[in-house]
Design a protein around this nucleic acid. Sequence first.
DNA 1: GGGCTACCATGACGGACGTCATGAAGGAGG
DNA 2: CCTCCTTCATGACGTCCGTCATGGTAGCCC
Lengths: 198, 198
Amino acid sequence: MTRTPRERMVLSAAQLVRIQGVGATGMRDVVAHAEAPRGSLQHYFPGGKDQLIAEAVAWAGDYAARRVARVAAKIEDPTPGKLFAAMAAQWRDEFTRDGFDGGCPLVATVADTAATSDGLREAVGKAFDGWQRPVAATLEQLGVPPARSTPLAVLMLSALEGAIVLARAHQDVAPLDTVVTELRPLLDGAVDKRRRRA
Amino acid sequence: MTRTPRERMVLSAAQLVRIQGVGATGMRDVVAHAEAPRGSLQHYFPGGKDQLIAEAVAWAGDYAARRVARVAAKIEDPTPGKLFAAMAAQWRDEFTRDGFDGGCPLVATVADTAATSDGLREAVGKAFDGWQRPVAATLEQLGVPPARSTPLAVLMLSALEGAIVLARAHQDVAPLDTVVTELRPLLDGAVDKRRRRA
DNA sequence: GGGCTACCATGACGGACGTCATGAAGGAGG
DNA sequence: CCTCCTTCATGACGTCCGTCATGGTAGCCC
């Protein structure tokens, strides 16, 4: 549980970015939040802020990917629609529990830096890929034909990210519930019945 | 076509926000981009940056709403799926024509200020509502039962916003095409056949 | 023990930010 | 002509940013 200062800084950067955005998150904020020594910044991240944010983005992508696998294992009698509902429920729970301060760090990074830093933009692209892959893999496992698993994963990620933005703007989890309800028949209808697992 | 300096400043603010985010967009940038006198800032926007961004957000919401009505009128033999395709095509065309520098200003504002400025967050919420309303109205006009028009509009906005983020991260319009293709049967299947217009 | 490396501390620099104070043009109405 | 008010112009203030320079400490290896 006790993490190295370096890890704490990356993790704190991700948390601050998802609340304030990249621009408003200062390096001094990060070290303060991580309770790390300020001098360590130039030691662990000689590439400066870009490197720190890039690692935070990569960590966020990994975290989202791991969370997909974890939540998929917990669903009983799983279907694609239930998988999406479980993914959205994680955000719903967090909003309900902790308020709407934090969004998705990947969205925040794209919004702030897509036009100004190619390195960060690419980092976010890879993070999205790393998140999308386990979603598509899980869909196939649930009986979705391989040709449709990736497009449906893209749809799921898009709808989820958009609903998160709407939920934060309205301070209301309703958009999350709405996309889950509306997308469920489409997702569950995509399973190839012959390959369905019990 | 010739706009007042005040209008130009609001418009420039919206454009810069959608490219750089709120934090990275300075007031001096705005007046420079609008070719407006710097002294006018404190005259027209005594509320400071928040007022300027709030007006830019409101303008962006209005613009999106107007664009929905405009594009809906141009579709021949319109269906909900075609409406969504047309909305996505506007973004697709812009990305293809002008590159991926600019995203949706509403998303950028939420990502940057949702946790720090309640006024701006509410402004974005209203802007989303003003955008969602004509979408839902158009859906009803196309035969979607009133009970489903709003949820489907929320789904369309969510999927579109999310796909825009993915497209920018990957510098590829594919996510936009994907959500259009995958959502089309769901959207077109929602029309009440008895009320369908020729 | 001497030296090398990893890690941490602190202060300074140059620049950009939002905001404010002050004041100048320039037409409208008396 | 003189005054009022809208509009614009310019410079300054204080703050925070990312980065860098410099130096200190702790532990390992020869």
